[in-house]
């Protein structure tokens, strides 16, 4: 190990974490109040959101400043890399919960419901097919009626979206090559294309949701299928949104001349994140749309 300077950058005390936590407290408790129809909820959420926004700008601004002023060297850089990998792993586990739910209802729950003794079950005549919105009936005193719906097909928009995301994975990599070669034009162009692809993905997704709700009769409330479909694609879409925002920041930073060929953790972290979102989409495409 290099011994010349064993100094690790320990930042000064910072107010951001505390403000962020307070913001989250306001945001979440406000949301609870709103969902349960108590008036101040929306205002608390608004205030909380402002706190979060303030911290996002402040904290990231500070980190970018520290990075650009050369506070982070190899040692710190390695910390960030490990941290990002671990963080992405936790995201994988989060998606695993929803994929697990999909697997469970599809392969265990619904077949079970359909195979009960017809003289005993309330769900006579229910067959185990997928996609399924369930047999319908009373749930905790509310009647749930199964509406007719059309399942999503893999071809068409989803296939186009797959192409979009796969291409965007290539364009960030291309941008990365540009950065490493110190070809700023390639870097900026690659990033710009990636951002555009990300936005087009989101637009397609929004159109698909609109179509599902208005014409296919497919909503969040369409039983097990609707729930797993929208939660999985929804959380994925949310991650694409985050990724696109982060890529935009990276693009702006690149335009401002940030990053060096041998020192650009922020770029790589975002790129990893983007690839992760990409892989999740492939799984979604196969398991949710296709099979």
């Amino acid at each position: 190990m290099a011994t010349e300077t064993q100094h690790y950058y320990v930042p000064n005390p910072s107010p951001y974490p505390f403000i962020l936590s307070s913001g989250l407290l306001l945001l979440t408790s406000g949301f609870v109040f709103k969902m349960n129809n108590f008036a101040p909820g929306v205002w608390m959420m608004f205030l909380g959101f402002l706190c979060v926004l303030y911290v996002l700008f402040g904290w990231f601004g500070k980190v970018i400043g520290e990075s650009e002023s050369g506070q982070y060297r190899e040692w710190e850089d390695k910390s960030f890399r490990i941290a990002m990998i671990v963080f992405i792993s936790s995201e994988v586990a989060f998606f695993a919960a929803f994929f697990g739910a999909l697997f469970f209802v599809r392969n265990i729950g619904i077949p079970e419901l359909a195979h009960f003794d017809p003289s005993l079950t309330p769900y006579k005549g229910f067959t185990a097919i997928w996609p399924s919105a369930g047999p319908g009936g009373m749930v905790l005193g509310k009647l749930y009626e199964v509406a007719k719906f059309e399942p999503m097909k893999p071809l068409g928009l989803p296939a186009i979206n797959t192409m979009i995301l796969l291409t965007s994975g290539l364009t960030v990599t291309w941008a990365h090559w540009g950065l490493v070669k110190d070809n700023r034009r390639q870097l900026i162009l690659g990033l710009f294309m990636t951002v555009v692809l990300g936005i087009s993905f989101l637009l397609c997704q929004a159109y698909e949701y609109h179509h599902a709700y208005t014409e296919m009769g497919l909503t969040l409330g369409t039983g097990a299928y609707g729930a797993t479909f929208f939660m999985l694609t929804g959380f994925h879409g949310f991650h694409v949104l985050l990724g696109t925002i982060m890529l935009t920041v990276i693009l702006l930073r690149s335009i401002n001349g940030h990053f060096k060929p041998n020192h650009h953790f922020a770029f790589e972290g975002v790129a990893w994140y983007w690839h992760f979102v990409d892989v999740v989409w492939l799984l979604l495409f196969v398991l949710v749309y296709w099979l």
Partner: peptide
């Protein structure tokens, strides 16, 4: 001891 689960037998 066996659970009674709504909708399931």
């Amino acid at each position: 001891a066996r659970d009674a689960i709504p909708g399931f037998l």
